[in-house]
Computed example of a mutant assay.
Amino acid sequence: MKKVGIIGGSGFIGSYITKAFLNNGFLVKVSATDIKREDKYQHLVTLNHSDNLHISELDVMNKSALQDFVFDCDIIIHSGTPFLLEFQDAKKQLFDPTIKGTENFLEVVSKTPGIEKIVFIASVAAWNTNFPLPAVNKSFTDTFDESDTRFTSTESHPYAQAKFMANQVVEKFIKDNPNLFFEISSVSPVMVLGKSMSNREDSTSSVLQYLIKKKIAPDKFIQELYDNDVPFAIVDVEDVANAAFKAATTIGLHGKDYLLTSETYKVSDISAMLNHQEPKEKASIIYKNDLAKIDLGIQFRPVKKTLNNYSN
């Protein structure tokens, strides 16, 4: 049996990735930032084939711990960067673990024989740090795909800037190391929604769904979404996991970075659907998913189904 190491494999997206690999006959090693917090990963031990699951504590800032985590893995999924909208220290909570953590990871895996494939769970922010607002020189109705120029701004949220910078680290590593013994691919989801696998509903994605459903604005950022009825491109968490699995088990995707996205709806219509009401406007396609459909064979769920899964 091949072994996959999933950094962040007990998180909102990572849990579904863990499930996908277990269901497909892999030995699965999942990292936890604090092994004593069983509530963060207890839901994984009830999955089918969980006898092939191992939970290991890991701090991505610790190179020695990273080496121990990856040394016997055939595939590594890096889904372990923080998704925080509220923070006290951007450097400590966002920039360091996201950027330095990525640098540490790449340094370690480059010295670890036996690895065949690495997949980064990146973000639409790696393409456009203004998301959900359009990139510069684009409007809300202009489409965006992998042929577009990546856009970043120092005015963007620190989370988005950190994800963009981490992607630049990965791209530079690929360019500077043309003879790697493993492949690297990335998947960049837009706003990831759906039902959490755990009973914990404190992931940023789950919190956003709850706030939008109840039309609660705890801060200026959320209030501006309502005030401007901002359109959001959405992707189902299960589709992200499926894409990560396909990217990890498909040969010949080295250097590719796939946008993962379904339909776009305004916040008011997202709120309506979360409350089992019909949207006032039809879905639009802003962020395009043709490349992921072609290379990974993904058929993306309609947003209405994704929101119903959360509400139910």
Rank of each mutant, 00 (worst) to 15 (best):
K117R: 14
V190K: 06
F21T: 03
V207Y: 05
T112N: 07
T98R: 15
P134T: 10
A283C: 05
N309E: 07
F144S: 01
K29M: 09
N52M: 12
F151R: 00
I298N: 08
E155F: 04
Q67Y: 13
Q42W: 12
P218Y: 14
L208T: 12
L260K: 00
K111Q: 14
S64E: 01
Y258W: 08
D74H: 11
P82M: 07
L193Y: 00
E281S: 14
L225V: 15
K91Q: 13
E238A: 10
K282D: 09
P113S: 12
A160N: 06
D59T: 13
S123D: 11
K305D: 14
E238K: 15
Q223G: 03
F221P: 01
A272L: 09
S10H: 07
L84R: 11
P231W: 03
F245G: 03
S31D: 02
A135D: 07
N128D: 06
Q277N: 10
T18V: 11
A20D: 08
Y226F: 14
N199E: 15
Q161D: 05
N23K: 13
E183V: 11
E155R: 14
E146F: 01
S268Q: 06
S10E: 06
K172P: 00
F95Q: 09
P279V: 15
L27G: 04
N130M: 01
V70R: 15
K3M: 02
E146V: 08
N309W: 03
K111D: 07
P132W: 15
L253V: 13
V207T: 14
C73S: 13
E281F: 09
D257G: 06
V267L: 12
K266E: 08
P189C: 14
I6K: 10
N48R: 14
K63C: 09
P218R: 15
F105S: 07
F140M: 07
S79H: 05
